[in-house]
Design a protein around this nucleic acid. Structure first.
Lengths: 290, 290
DNA sequence: ATTCAAGTGAAGAAAATTTTTCAGTAAAGT
DNA sequence: ACTTTACTGAAAAATTTTCTTCACTTGAAT
């Protein structure tokens, strides 16, 4: 029935000549605020266009749909395509390999994870978190779990360059209480916790919250229980075609945060970065970049 | 009833704690392809989330709507706002933020890096590298630099679960020679080296090559000098709008490799993974996933 | 082990939406 | 002026959707 590749908008335009007065009035009304104007019930649409419901029913049949629900389903598909698709349906990523190759399947999943995470991200929370991270008057602690310790380490490395007073709480659980002794009110703790959520991490969050620390949590779509203690929560999707979870979304968020903090602190961090560069040059630890 | 200024996405997130299992399942399903996933009939949505229609009706009431139609109307308003907002143009990743927001610029750059890396990747080399990593008769060494040590750590963590005989060569440079004593012909070394390339890493590569080891190099688009000793080279693009480089492409490649190795070794690695799970259960180190 | 409370979905009741019927109206042709 | 034809919407019929009830299950607590 509804098997045409044209958009509904085009179909309306093309059919316009064969439409009657009331139908045309309806068509214009639909195109007015296309495509959302077609989302309500047939009654609402009719009322909106100041025509009767049978007119709507008749017109969508003229357009080639089997009935109003068929028409609306097509409209929904159009909206879906329009909303959820910047780049994703990019044919294949690694063009040498078939679509079913793990490289393409995995990348598809990751891209869709990225989009999903960013759709739900709270910008205000993001900005506030960056402000917290950039504030040198607050000591900064970073802690990760079994898998996420790599991410924690990555954040620690970069923050250490940008600002003083950064500590990576290593995941040897019995050393945690010692670190917590130093945590003061309004200090900042970044906690990484993805499934399977670790009890010790939850304990640490609880204790830190009691001491009045600000907690920023990076977790997965199912939200670690730590979230009830956290001031800011960021959920990255981590599902990929693998027995493991993916950390790519969280790394992306992390790097973006680092970039944002870097922008905020550039005046003060610039000297630190330059001093670091100078030290590297002296120690000849690195090759000159050519 | 539905008069709250939050978006439905936020309301779902906030309500999550008070939701039951089936309701939560539904909530995730709604967030999955938000907001279009909520456009169909209550029956369709229920079926999509694999719950019953009453569950849907109950949950939207918990969210503060008077009923499903009220909920759906709110969702339509949101979609309308999104689509007809000329600023966001539904092209950006984080739609709450303008195109020029760091979140959108950064993500754009990363996506383009990913595409670029995958266009140029050599599939044969990828497969051969996975085969090397999956071969338990070869000892496996992993080594990273100042920044990439996090990636090295990440690979190490996963490989350790999948196979025996994995070593993370920590970047305390004067300990390296000790590790190298154990490296035999045909053992495998994965080396991470991005700019600024480290002298010690180059030395290590040279020595390992002399001992007949197979070298897999993960580097940036400018190719670390280690490449002249390497059997397989993978270049990830790392440029982003930041003073720092991005490791996302390399992490993506890494995770894909881990997934591929995991597939190859599933027969043998399965027992290891299960044994690990069992140990976690016993030590109660993790919370049960609910 | 037994009880209890909470959660869930099948099935039926209620409400709505969609479709059909049909009578009234306006415009064009004779 | 009369007929014909096509169009339109009110109202009823048909269908679908939403909501409610209730019995069954599950998991927790005594």
């Amino acid at each position: 029935m509804s098997e045409q590749s044209d958009t509904i908008s085009e179909r309306l335009q093309n059919a316009m000549d064969g439409l009657t007065r009331a139908e045309r009035q309806l068509a214009y009304s639909l195109l007015e605020n296309y495509p959302v104007s077609g989302l309500g019930s047939i009654t609402a649409i009719a009322h909106n266009a100041k025509v009767s419901t049978p007119t709507v029913a008749r017109m969508v049949q003229k357009l080639g749909f089997s009935g109003f629900p068929d028409f609306q389903a097509a409209l929904r598909r159009e909206i879906e395509a329009r909303i959820s698709d910047p780049i994703s349906k990019y044919k294949s990523w690694a063009e040498q390999a078939p679509d079913e190759h793990i490289l393409n399947r995995f990348t598809d999943a990751v891209i869709s994870n990225i989009r999903q995470m960013l759709t739900h991200i709270d910008i205000t929370s993001f900005e506030e978190s960056c402000a917290l991270l950039a504030d040198p008057s607050r000591a900064l602690y970073v802690v990760g779990g079994r898998i996420t310790r790599s991410l924690a380490d990555y954040l620690f490395l970069h923050m250490q360059v940008l600002r003083p007073n950064v500590t990576h709480i290593q995941s040897i659980s019995n050393a945690w209480p010692h670190y917590l002794l130093d945590v003061n009110k309004d200090d900042v703790i970044v906690i990484f916790d993805v499934r399977r959520y670790e009890n010790s991490t939850l304990k640490l969050a609880e204790m830190a919250a009691e001491r009045g620390a600000r907690i920023i949590l990076l977790t997965d779509q199912w939200r670690s229980p730590v979230h009830s203690f956290a001031d800011h929560v960021f959920c990255g999707r981590i599902t990929v075609p693998s027995a493991w979870d993916s950390s790519v979304t969280l790394l992306l968020l992390l790097e973006t945060m680092i970039a944002a903090v870097q922008e905020r602190t550039w005046d003060s961090s610039r000297q630190r970065v330059e001093a670091l560069e100078e030290m590297f040059d002296r120690t000849r630890f690195f090759r000159k970049f050519t």
